[in-house]
């Protein structure tokens, strides 16, 4: 595959010639790649956001442990000290019922009745906020806390997190399948575009083979053509995704102010990476397929 400068200028010239000669088919190919990459990006954006929501939820309080009333403070703290060393426990924050009441008031300042109730005679408990390393470990951990005699109740929202996890797994699979099918369709279209280019030059290809050109020397202009088609299509898709996501974040800021959308730059960097790699791969693969028959001389 060694190539000197003469080779490179030959290849670039040939590629340009092919692209321009078949400009309509080139346009069709670019559009197909763009559609396919846009769908890929759609699934990517969904998965990225689901992961983002999951991460945000996980970083919030995962488990609340409430302690029985009238338990001596020393016993509460003893359990706290022990539980810090249990596996999967990341952090434990102790709170008193006064602190619990204060944070409730802060969270729901408009609920007059509630505020009045907890101000008069605080019905709340002392307790712990427990954070873990592994959301899957939450149920066992809850069980373990529950066995302690001083523990009154254990509350956790692990179910939400694990359901989100499942959803994003399903989504990933659906995404791969849809993308696989679309990828095949894209491949098919690009193969045909390049086959046209090869067909127009089949005499050249034949003569080159017969005078001793290597397969790679003959392939390069067509491979480059495939890559250009793939990259152009991907860039179109990336533009659409970028515009669309900007619009979405704008709209969401008004309609769902507390919904944690993944930031634009992290979405776009992943979308760019996947679509460009995908575009190049599809382009290269398509040109190899299109040429196979013609190189068999």
């Amino acid at each position: 595959m060694a190539m000197n400068l003469n080779g490179v200028s030959y290849i670039v010239r040939e590629t340009m010639r092919n692209l321009i000669r078949n400009s309509w088919m080139s346009l069709a190919s670019v559009s197909t790649v763009a559609i396919s990459m846009f769908v890929l990006s759609f699934f990517l954006v969904l998965t990225i956001n689901l992961n983002h929501v999951t991460a945000v939820l996980q970083s919030q309080v995962e488990m609340k442990i409430f302690i029985n009333r009238h338990v001596p403070r020393s016993q509460e703290l003893a359990l706290l000290r022990q539980a810090r060393h249990w596996p999967d426990v990341r952090r434990i924050d102790f709170f008193t019922k006064q602190q619990a009441a204060a944070s409730l008031k802060q969270e729901f300042p408009d609920q007059r009745d509630l505020v009045a109730l907890i101000s008069k005679s605080n019905p709340l408990f002392d307790g712990y906020d427990v954070y873990t390393y592994r959301p899957q470990a939450i149920p066992q951990l809850a069980e373990r806390f529950h066995k302690e005699s001083i523990v009154h109740t254990v509350v956790y929202e692990g179910q939400v997190v694990s359901r989100l996890d499942k959803l994003s797994n399903i989504l990933r699979w659906v995404g791969w399948i849809v993308e696989g099918l679309l990828g095949l369709a894209t491949l098919f279209i690009i193969v045909n575009t390049i086959r046209l280019a090869v067909f127009a030059r089949r005499r050249e290809v034949q003569v080159m083979k017969l005078v001793g050109a290597t397969d790679w020397f003959i392939r390069w202009p067509f491979v480059l053509e495939g890559m250009v088609l793939g990259i152009l299509g991907s860039l179109v898709a990336d533009g659409l995704v970028d515009g669309g996501y900007r619009w979405l974040t704008g709209a969401a800021a008004v309609a769902l102010p507390f919904w944690p959308l993944a930031p634009l730059h992290s979405v776009m960097s992943e979308v760019l990476m996947f679509t460009l790699i995908g575009g190049v791969l599809v382009g290269v693969l398509a040109s190899m397929v299109a040429l196979r028959r013609f190189l068999r001389i």
Partner: peptide, 20 residues
Amino acid sequence: KLLPQRTVYQNVAFAMEAVG
């Protein structure tokens, strides 16, 4: 097996281009 769209010179040069 000459290439009809290339001149005499280009046809001959093509065999050299093809081997780099």
